[in-house]
Amino acid sequence: MKLSCLQENLSKGLQTIMYSVPAKSSLPILSNVLIATENGRIKLSSTNLETAITTYVGASVEEEGSTTIPARLLKDFISNLPAGTINMQVKDEILAINSKTTKSKFNGSSAKDFPELPSFPKKSQVLEIDATTLNNAVNIVAFAAGTDTSRPVFTGIYFNYSKGKLTITSTDGFRLSEKILNMKGNVDDFSVVIPAKTIVEVAKIFVASQEPISFVLNQDENLALFKSEDTLIATRILDGQYPDYKKIIPSEHVVKAIFNSPEFTEAVRLTDIFAKESNNTIKIRFDPEGKIKITSLSEETGQHESNLNAEIEGELVEIAFNSKYLLDFLNNIKSEKINFASNGNVSPCVFTTEDQKDFIHIVMPMQI
């Protein structure tokens, strides 16, 4: 293999594939990036056997070939080279890289030892999603996903497509976020759960794409595939039945409120400082007189109370919350106004915003 390319393009490509390079692996080859030539370009691939990423980099190819090189070593090296043309040549699994002022050699391994990589199905129903739209949806949903690997389905994001609507949902059993997107395309209904960490990376990698993201399911191999411009990401679909969360969304409310998001965020953040010794428990009082009072419950570190004005209808209600859950929601939602509704201090509490249509966030109250 012999070729030349621009340092900045190769550095960007290596950064793209790093997500699926495992930090530790019983298979040393998985710590490598597969470098190959294909159709006059450099093909970079990595996999941790759960997720695989392939991206292409423009190059001037003199000789075809392939090899694998330790990914982090190569990424760190290329990112520190000055911008400009670099020349690469592989001989006997040794990669030589020359720039204007440097000469380096990397010991590699045969590409034959690298796992087989998924390819984008040619005959499949494709759902096209605008890259910015997906990124915005993931940002307000993914934070509610669980981290407990003993319940794998809760560590994923639920994608449900039906009648032209794509519903994206996550929950850890204590809070839930749901965003509904209106879609175009002739695609059969489907439901899958995809690892939340992977979806976050998909959204991040493709956020600047000018082309829509092509989303395809390969049920035979239990894969979800995302493709846009020069990059393909394939990930395993999580097994398990996603909970029927719709039944916990309350249809009746005894109190409703509208309040300023920055003011509420500041009040919760200040109260949270005093709540760390009480499992982050804070109490919020919704008064129909137009006042919200937020207090800490632990007296070990002191006491705190924040007050703010709000539009409130219904009964006077006091509800205990985990302040961490509220701050996760508030830090990910960029809106001036928040709408709140609850059917009492033991009922799931509903948060919506004026800026995000077809979005709902639910937080379960704490028992005190």
Rank of each mutant, 00 (worst) to 15 (best):
L127H: 00
L10T: 06
E252G: 00
Q356L: 15
L10P: 02
S124A: 15
R175D: 01
S162Q: 14
L176I: 04
S150D: 10
I248Q: 02
N87D: 13
G290V: 02
I42P: 00
S11I: 01
K247T: 14
P250E: 04
Q7I: 10
Q125S: 12
T235F: 02
D287S: 05
V193T: 14
P365Y: 13
G156D: 05
A224V: 03
T37H: 10
I333R: 10
Q15N: 15
V126C: 09
R72H: 13
E315K: 13
F259C: 05
K112R: 13
E38D: 13
G344E: 09
S124Y: 09
V255S: 05
M1Y: 01
T295P: 02
K337C: 04
T147A: 11
E63G: 10
V200W: 07
F286K: 02
A23I: 15
Q303N: 12
D188K: 15
G13V: 09
F154T: 10
K163A: 15
A234K: 00
S25Y: 08
V33A: 13
P115R: 04
I292N: 03
E93W: 04
L81C: 13
Q356N: 15
F114V: 05
E289C: 06
A71V: 04
N345V: 03
D130C: 09
N182P: 12
E266R: 15
Y158W: 12
V268P: 04
F329Q: 08
D189K: 07
N345A: 11
R285D: 14
A203F: 05
I292W: 04
E311L: 08
I213T: 01
E311K: 07
D148G: 12
I78D: 06
V138F: 00
S214W: 09
L3Q: 01
K247I: 05
A203Q: 02
D76P: 04
I94M: 13
K100L: 13
T37M: 03
L134Y: 00
D355N: 14
N160D: 11
G65W: 10
A96H: 15
G173H: 08
S109A: 12
F259I: 03
F215T: 05
R236F: 01
D76N: 11
T51I: 01
E63P: 06
L297M: 11
Q219E: 15
